[in-house]
Measured scan of single mutants.
Amino acid sequence: MATGGRRGAAAAPLLVAVAALLLGAAGHLYPGEVCPGMDIRNNLTRLHELENCSVIEGHLQILLMFKTRPEDFRDLSFPKLIMITDYLLLFRVYGLESLKDLFPNLTVIRGSRLFFNYALVIFEMVHLKELGLYNLMNITRGSVRIEKNNELCYLATIDWSRILDSVEDNYIVLNKDDNEECGDICPGTAKGKTNCPATVINGQFVERCWTHSHCQKVCPTICKSHGCTAEGLCCHSECLGNCSQPDDPTKCVACRNFYLDGRCVETCPPPYYHFQDWRCVNFSFCQDLHHKCKNSRRQGCHQYVIHNNKCIPECPSGYTMNSSNLLCTPCLGPCPKVCHLLEGEKTIDSVTSAQELRGCTVINGSLIINIRGGNNLAAELEANLGLIEEISGYLKIRRSYALVSLSFFRKLRLIRGETLEIGNYSFYALDNQNLRQLWDWSKHNLTITQGKLFFHYNPKLCLSEIHKMEEVSGTKGRQERNDIALKTNGDQASCENELLKFSYIRTSFDKI
Rank of each mutant, 00 (worst) to 15 (best):
C196L: 06
F73A: 06
Q61M: 03
H214M: 13
P187E: 04
K129T: 04
A119D: 00
E266W: 03
H59D: 02
N202W: 07
C252N: 00
G227A: 05
N117S: 08
N117R: 06
K294W: 11
R113A: 01
R263Y: 13
I306T: 05
D169V: 07
N179Y: 03
Q204F: 13
R145L: 10
G183K: 13
F115T: 13
Y259D: 11
R263F: 11
T68S: 06
T267E: 03
G227P: 08
P104M: 01
R279Q: 05
I201R: 09
V200P: 06
V144P: 02
D165A: 11
F285C: 03
N257M: 03
V121F: 03
C293V: 07
I109R: 00
L164P: 01
D261C: 05
E168M: 08
L131S: 02
Y87E: 00
V34M: 14
N282F: 02
N42V: 09
Y171H: 15
E124G: 02
C209D: 02
S225K: 12
N295Q: 05
P336F: 06
T229W: 06
P197E: 05
V126G: 12
C153N: 01
F285L: 12
L81V: 02
L88P: 00
G203T: 11
C328M: 02
G192Q: 11
P271K: 06
Y273W: 10
R110K: 12
S237V: 07
A119I: 00
N149I: 00
H127R: 02
E314Q: 07
N149L: 00
L60W: 00
W160H: 01
T229M: 12
Q216S: 10
Y87I: 00
N295F: 08
E57W: 03
P270R: 08
V121Q: 01
D184L: 05
P246Y: 03
Y94C: 06
G95P: 01
T250C: 07
L29G: 08
C182R: 04
R279E: 03
S317W: 06
H214Y: 03
C228W: 01
I163G: 01
Q61V: 12
C264R: 00
K148R: 15
Q61S: 13
I222E: 11
R279W: 11
S77E: 09
G300I: 05
P336I: 10
R69F: 12
C243E: 00
E71Q: 06
D248C: 01
P187D: 11
F283L: 07
L29I: 15
P79K: 06
L63K: 03
E124R: 06
H214L: 06
N195K: 10
H307S: 09
S225Y: 09
T229H: 03
P70Q: 06
N309D: 06
H226Q: 03
V265Y: 13
F116H: 00
K100A: 05
V265T: 09
T85N: 05
E231N: 05
T229E: 09
G262T: 05
V265S: 07
Q245W: 03
R141L: 12
S77T: 06
H236G: 09
R256I: 08
C53V: 06
Q204P: 08
G95H: 13
N179V: 14
G32S: 03
F258Y: 15
G37R: 03
L131G: 01
S213P: 07
G227S: 08
D178I: 07
C239D: 00
I158P: 04
F283D: 10
R145P: 01
D288E: 05
S296D: 14
N105R: 04
E207P: 07
V173H: 15
H291C: 15
V108F: 02
L326P: 07
K191L: 06
P330S: 05
L289V: 12
N257S: 06
R145K: 15
H236Q: 04
M83Q: 07
I163L: 04
F275V: 14
S323L: 11
V173M: 12
S324E: 10
M125S: 14
T199V: 07
N325Y: 09
D86W: 01
C228V: 05
R145I: 10
R110T: 09
N150Y: 11
L60I: 11
L289C: 12
Q216L: 09
C239H: 01
L128A: 02
T250W: 10
E49S: 15
Q303I: 06
T199R: 07
R113I: 11
D159Q: 09
S225D: 08
K224T: 06
V265L: 11
R256K: 08
E57I: 12
H214P: 03
I306C: 14
L152Y: 01
V55A: 09
E130C: 03
V253Y: 15
D39Q: 15
Q276V: 04
P70W: 09
N325T: 04
L50G: 01
N175L: 05
G95T: 06
N43C: 03
S143E: 07
L63F: 06
T140H: 06
Q216R: 04
G58R: 00
D177P: 14
C182A: 12
H28L: 09
C215K: 08
P330Y: 15
F116L: 09
P70L: 12
I139G: 01
Y87V: 00
R46E: 09
E180W: 07
P269L: 06
I40T: 15
L99V: 08
G232C: 11
P316Q: 10
F115N: 02
N257R: 08
I185A: 13
C182W: 03
C215W: 15
